[in-house]
């Protein structure tokens, strides 16, 4: 039996949304590290964002569900810890989608460059931690709106 190409599998995974920030996909987030066939088993290597992120098990379930939906029966998910996930692996498209959604994308400088709502640059940090482990809370002093910032890690 022939199986779908790895490019095709990557494409399907690109359609799987992140369970907590559904505007970006798992591939945008950069957590899918490899897709390979071993015999008739599709092996997907995934790295966790934060070690305690409760979305990790949902992500694994979503990957399996998506691939089963495309007719792949034998799936193996491998956890890879090293190299540790970094926000540098987030796609350009993913960063753009985050900002459109109201979450400031990660920046090498360690803080947001502009408010995702009004584009203002007078910003202040409220807390290093936000509604999920991967985000911090900031506020724009121009439009006075709070917003979330995707932390650099």
């Amino acid at each position: 039996m022939t199986h779908p190409t790895t490019e095709q599998v990557w494409d399907w995974l690109h359609q799987v949304p992140d369970p907590e920030i559904p505007v970006i996909s798992l591939t945008d987030l950069g957590i899918i590290r490899d897709v390979a066939w071993q015999g008739d088993t599709c092996v997907v290597t995934v790295t966790p964002t934060y070690s305690g992120c409760p979305a990790t098990s949902i992500i694994n379930l979503d990957i399996e569900t998506a691939l089963r939906g495309h007719g792949i029966d034998k799936i193996e998910l491998r956890r890879q810890l090293s190299p540790a996930w970094t926000t540098d692996w987030m796609s350009e498209q993913g960063r753009k989608k985050l900002e459109d959604y109201g979450i400031a994308p990660p920046q090498p400088a360690g803080g947001p460059t502009r408010c995702p709502h009004c584009g203002g640059t007078h910003l202040e940090k409220l807390s290093q931690f936000g509604s999920t482990p991967c985000k911090a809370q900031w506020r724009c002093k121009d439009c006075l709106e709070p917003f979330e910032y995707f932390k650099c890690i």
């Binding site: 070690s51 409760p54 482990p133 809370q137």
Partner: peptide
């Protein structure tokens, strides 16, 4: 939120 996040990281580790 910060304390809960810290606890979560520690439990993940």
């Amino acid at each position: 939120i910060a304390l809960a996040n810290t606890a979560l990281d520690l439990l993940g580790q």
